[in-house]
């Protein structure tokens, strides 16, 4: 594979052909914000947090989907981009009911971290306060729709890695919800293998392990990279 040289935020970096701007930047220590992307899963391009400016292109481009090109000039943190990202985070915080104080993931939530990192210290939008259920029917895990940001990581990991496709999205627009099987309680799902991958990849406290108290839970997202590499190299055979 050949190597490409590009400029990101004024720094010259190299990347492999076919690599995305997101991962090339990441490898060079430049962290572009993201919520729907997760290494090892297909890309949704849905959260729009990773949008960057690429010189010569009129429209902002999602770093998670854009392939590097020779001499590409990328800006990942212009004032306009930062303003957009703050507003997107505000939109997410106002969309459902994010009460960090009672969340098992408090302190380790990707949404919370991002808000802090972007300097979102209050929300200027009207909170929607939808009335949403919590599904505690599964023996080991729980799903709190109030904290779901519809990133679809759980849907993708369950389909692409576990092969169970327990999760999908039902409804549309503001009425979108994560569902298991035919909308039955998670605990009654016939397809769920209780592998817990969805819980690990969920960026917020929407999917959580039961029996942890507030701010106690931590997620291991590195496991995916391990599984995927192991699969490619067939590590379990030798």
């Amino acid at each position: 594979m050949s190597v490409r040289t590009l400029e990101v935020d004024g720094r010259t970096i190299t990347a492999l052909e076919g690599q995305t701007v997101f991962s090339a930047a990441w490898d060079s220590g430049i962290r572009i914000p993201r919520l729907c992307h997760l290494g090892g899963l297909s890309e949704a391009g849905a959260c729009r947090l990773c949008l960057v400016e690429i010189e010569g292109q009129k429209k902002l481009q999602p770093a998670c989907l854009t392939k590097v090109a020779e001499d590409m000039v990328v800006n990942t943190a212009t004032p306009a981009l930062l303003a957009h990202r703050r507003l997107i985070v505000e939109l997410l915080l106002a969309e459902r009911n994010h009460v960090c104080a009672v969340c098992v993931l408090n302190g380790a939530c990707e949404l919370q971290d991002l808000a802090a990192q972007l300097g979102v210290d209050h929300v200027r939008l009207r909170p929607q306060y939808p009335s949403l259920p919590v599904d505690l029917s599964h023996e080991r895990f729980g799903l709190d729709h109030n904290r779901c940001i519809l990133c679809t990581r759980c849907v993708r990991v369950c389909d692409e890695v576990e092969g169970a496709h327990t999760w999908d999205v039902a409804g549309r627009g503001r009425n979108s919800r994560i569902i298991s099987d035919l909308g039955e309680p998670w605990g009654d799902s016939g397809s769920c293998t209780s592998c817990g991958k969805c819980v690990q990849v969920c960026p917020t406290g929407a999917l959580f392990s039961k029996g942890r108290t507030v701010a106690e839970m931590r997620k291991d997202r590195g496991f995916l990279r391990y599984i995927m590499t192991a699969r490619e190299k067939k590590l379990w055979i030798s």
Binding site: A44, G45, A46, C47, R48, I88, L91, L92, A94, E95, I149, L150, V169, G171, R172, G173, R174, N175, S176
Partner: peptide, 11 residues
């Protein structure tokens, strides 16, 4: 009519 996939449009 928003499909709900991306945050800016959905919310």
């Amino acid at each position: 009519e928003s499909c709900g996939k991306c945050v800016p449009c959905r919310a």
